[in-house]
Amino acid sequence: MERDATFVQKKAERATLRVHLREKYRLPQSEKDENQIQMAGDDVDLPEDLQKMMADDQVEEEEKNSFLGQIQNIQNMDMDTLKEKATATFTEIKQAAEEKCLLM
Rank of each mutant, 00 (worst) to 15 (best):
M53S: 02
V19C: 05
K83V: 10
L102A: 11
D42W: 02
Q51H: 04
R22H: 11
A5E: 13
E13Y: 01
E34S: 03
A40C: 01
E84V: 08
R14Y: 10
Q58C: 09
F90R: 09
T16Q: 15
R26W: 01
L50A: 10
A5P: 00
N76S: 06
N76R: 04
S30Q: 10
A5N: 09
R18N: 14
Q72C: 03
E62I: 00
Q72H: 07
L68V: 06
K85R: 14
R14K: 07
M39G: 00
T91R: 09
D56S: 11
K83P: 00
R22I: 04
I71F: 05
F67N: 09
Q75H: 01
R26Y: 00
E61F: 09
N76Y: 00
L17S: 11
Q70S: 12
T89S: 11
L21M: 14
C101I: 14
E62V: 01
D45M: 06
Q75P: 00
D4T: 06
M54E: 13
L46P: 08
N35A: 12
A55L: 13
E62S: 02
T87K: 14
V59G: 04
D45V: 02
G69H: 06
K94R: 15
C101F: 14
R26L: 10
E23W: 05
D43W: 00
E13H: 02
K52G: 05
R18F: 06
M77P: 00
F7D: 14
L46Q: 13
L17G: 12
A12N: 04
R26V: 09
Y25L: 14
N65V: 02
V19F: 11
K32P: 00
L21E: 15
N73L: 04
K24N: 12
L68A: 03
D42C: 07
A15W: 01
K24M: 15
A5L: 10
E13Q: 15
R18L: 13
K52D: 07
M39I: 00
A96S: 13
D43G: 00
I37K: 04
M53Y: 01
D80P: 01
V8T: 08
V59P: 01
K24W: 13
D4N: 06
D57G: 10
L82T: 08
E48M: 09
K94P: 02
R3I: 11
G69P: 04
A5Q: 09
T91Y: 03
N65Q: 13
Q36M: 11
L17R: 12
I37M: 13
T6K: 12
Q38T: 12
G69S: 08
L68Q: 05
D33M: 05
T91E: 14
M104N: 06
T91F: 03
D49F: 08
E63W: 09
